[in-house]
Simulated scan of single mutants.
Amino acid sequence: MGAAIAVACKDPAAAEGLFTLARNGCRTPAAVLRLRTEFTQHGVILPVTDTTPSQPENTQSPS
């Protein structure tokens, strides 16, 4: 994990990829915010405009 964080600190694409992977466990907007805060505390810069939902919406097809 340390190596991935070190790369993410230097490479924006790696940072986004690592954040996307880590975000899979987030179920609420607050959890995504906590994750973003953790990344910042480790020196990983993320785009401010990330509006991707933490989890795909469950959609049902009409019957």
Rank of each mutant, 00 (worst) to 15 (best):
residue 39 F to A: 12
residue 35 L to I: 04
residue 59 T to S: 02
residue 23 R to Y: 02
residue 10 K to P: 14
residue 50 D to W: 12
residue 36 R to I: 00
residue 58 N to C: 01
residue 11 D to M: 08
residue 25 G to W: 09
residue 7 V to I: 11
residue 8 A to V: 11
residue 27 R to E: 13
residue 63 S to P: 11
residue 3 A to M: 05
residue 32 V to L: 06
residue 13 A to Y: 12
residue 61 S to E: 11
residue 1 M to T: 09
residue 53 P to E: 02
residue 22 A to L: 05
residue 56 P to T: 00
residue 43 G to T: 03
residue 37 T to L: 05
residue 50 D to R: 09
residue 50 D to E: 13
residue 29 P to H: 03
residue 33 L to I: 04
residue 55 Q to G: 02
residue 23 R to M: 11
residue 23 R to C: 12
residue 50 D to S: 07
residue 32 V to D: 04
residue 35 L to Q: 08
residue 36 R to H: 06
residue 26 C to R: 04
residue 41 Q to Y: 03
residue 35 L to T: 04
residue 26 C to T: 09
residue 23 R to G: 04
residue 11 D to Y: 05
residue 61 S to Y: 02
residue 37 T to F: 05
residue 63 S to K: 02
residue 43 G to S: 07
residue 55 Q to M: 04
residue 4 A to Q: 14
residue 38 E to M: 05
residue 12 P to M: 09
residue 57 E to H: 03
residue 54 S to W: 10
residue 21 L to D: 10
residue 28 T to D: 06
residue 12 P to C: 13
residue 9 C to D: 04
residue 13 A to R: 14
residue 15 A to C: 15
residue 34 R to P: 00
residue 51 T to S: 10
residue 46 L to D: 11
residue 31 A to P: 03
residue 9 C to P: 03
residue 34 R to Y: 00
residue 59 T to D: 01
residue 49 T to Q: 13
residue 31 A to W: 07
residue 45 I to F: 05
residue 33 L to H: 08
residue 34 R to L: 03
residue 42 H to K: 11
residue 57 E to T: 02
residue 21 L to S: 10
residue 31 A to S: 10
residue 63 S to A: 04
residue 57 E to P: 01
residue 51 T to A: 09
residue 42 H to A: 11
residue 25 G to A: 12
residue 47 P to Y: 10
residue 13 A to H: 13
residue 34 R to G: 00
residue 9 C to T: 14
residue 35 L to M: 04
residue 27 R to T: 06
residue 32 V to A: 08
residue 63 S to H: 03
residue 33 L to R: 13
residue 39 F to I: 08
residue 8 A to C: 11
residue 10 K to I: 12
residue 50 D to M: 08
residue 57 E to G: 01
residue 23 R to W: 03
residue 59 T to F: 01
residue 52 T to R: 10
residue 37 T to W: 05
residue 40 T to D: 09
residue 2 G to E: 14
residue 12 P to D: 15
residue 21 L to M: 14
residue 61 S to V: 02
residue 49 T to S: 12
residue 25 G to H: 06
residue 10 K to C: 15
residue 31 A to E: 15
residue 18 L to H: 12
residue 38 E to S: 06
residue 53 P to L: 01
residue 43 G to H: 01
residue 43 G to N: 09
residue 4 A to F: 11
residue 22 A to S: 09
residue 10 K to G: 13
residue 45 I to K: 15
residue 51 T to W: 07
residue 1 M to Q: 09
residue 31 A to R: 05
residue 42 H to P: 01
residue 53 P to K: 01
residue 49 T to W: 10
residue 7 V to S: 13
residue 30 A to T: 04
residue 33 L to S: 11
residue 42 H to Q: 15
residue 40 T to I: 00
residue 42 H to E: 12
residue 2 G to D: 14
residue 35 L to C: 05
residue 6 A to P: 07
residue 15 A to M: 13
residue 9 C to G: 13
residue 23 R to F: 03
residue 59 T to M: 01
residue 15 A to D: 15
residue 43 G to W: 08
residue 28 T to W: 06
residue 6 A to T: 07
residue 34 R to V: 00
residue 35 L to F: 05
residue 8 A to W: 15
residue 53 P to I: 00
residue 36 R to W: 04
residue 16 E to F: 11
residue 24 N to C: 05
residue 39 F to R: 07
residue 7 V to H: 11
residue 11 D to K: 07
residue 48 V to L: 09
residue 54 S to I: 00
residue 38 E to A: 05
residue 57 E to V: 00
